[in-house]
């Protein structure tokens, strides 16, 4: 049968992907579905099986059971067709410390038989420019800072135009500017049509750049979908900042909301109410508050944050499920 099979819309698809090391199950039957053209956040606390999953997707390790398709091809059987179209940063950058940044990229580029040698020097230069490392191209990598190595690792993934980029913790070790640049880079790559699969334990990062996400916990995927869908499970709230706390509570209660007072670092507590289950639009609430004589200093709509959802799914603090 010729036709669009589901696999062709997906850059990465796994079914029941499992990896066991001895008795320990590192990845437990995950079904990943990464749509083509998406920026897909692969979230989870440290040790939840993200990197092990990525190693299986890239055929670095063998799955104990389950199947993988990357760019519509079975892995690891078709890795020689698939991997040249995939750029990857896996578990941190790794380079030959005694070679310069540019020499390192040339070295790794020769490993790919599809990479044309004639354009190598130019492609290396371009990739270095793209991550802002041109000035350090001829410096030995042992003199690089962690952030520079991280950029060089990203440059390595960009040596050829790729259909899929797999970036494992791409902002590790980067300063705020570097993090921002990586975010912009991912956005521009996504705009060119590249599917980007980003693993991270940093929610803010994923929240800012991703269209889709999956959350891993203790080797299993506990949530997966578009970012909007993941967020929707949480609750939208209004937060009113006012010196007239009592009046505000009265007005909101009158509107059918269930306001509570929350302490903050200012003298007057904020008044917070869930919007779920009411038909009130924010502007109507403001109108009602003003009409009720409440002096408003601030009125904030709080969208449900991914962080709350993440913590609800994976546990609080260091207490993550092992």
């Amino acid at each position: 049968m010729i036709g669009v099979t589901p696999e062709e819309d997906l850059a990465i698809e796994s079914r029941g992907l499992t990896k066991r090391f001895g008795r320990q199950t590192a990845v437990n039957g995950i079904d990943l579905a990464v749509p083509r053209g998406s920026v897909f956040g692969f979230l989870g606390p440290n040790g939840s099986g993200k990197t092990t999953s990525i190693r299986m997707l890239l055929a670095l390790t063998q799955a104990t059971s389950g199947s993988i398709n990357v760019l519509g091809r079975r892995m690891p059987a078709r890795l020689h067709d698939v991997l040249p179209r995939v750029g990857a940063l896996v578990e941190g950058p790794a380079f030959y410390p005694f070679l310069s940044g540019a020499a390192n990229l040339r070295r790794l580029d020769t490993a790919d038989r599809h990479a044309p040698g004639g354009t190598r020097a130019a492609r290396v230069q371009l990739a270095l420019e793209r991550v802002g490392l041109s000035h350090a191209a001829d410096k030995k990598v042992h003199a690089y800072s962690l952030g520079m190595k991280q950029r060089l690792g990203i440059a390595n993934a960009l040596l050829l135009p790729r259909e899929l980029l797999v970036l494992d913790e791409p902002t590790n070790g980067l300063d705020p500017q570097g993090t921002r640049e990586v975010r912009n880079l991912v956005r521009s790559l996504a705009a060119e049509g590249t599917t980007v699969f980003v693993s991270s334990h940093l929610l803010a990062e994923v929240e800012q750049i991703c269209t889709h996400a999956a959350v891993m916990s203790a080797g299993s995927i506990v949530a997966q979908g578009t970012l909007a869908a993941l967020r929707q499970v949480g609750d939208t709230r209004v937060r009113v900042r006012t010196p007239d706390t009592q009046s505000a509570v009265r007005v909101l209660t009158h509107l059918g909301l269930d306001p509570t007072q929350t302490q903050n670092d200012r003298a007057d507590p904020d008044v917070v109410a869930l919007l779920r289950g009411t038909h009130w639009q924010p502007e109507a609430i403001v109108t009602a508050l003003v009409a009720g004589g409440v002096r408003i200093r601030g009125f904030i709509i709080e969208e449900p944050s991914l962080e709350e959802r993440f913590v609800a799914l994976t546990g609080e603090g260091f207490d993550v499920v092992q």
Partner: peptide, 11 residues
């Protein structure tokens, strides 16, 4: 060095 994984992913 860790470069083995990058050589193999190249592939």
């Amino acid at each position: 060095l860790g470069t083995l994984r990058y050589l193999l992913v190249a592939p």
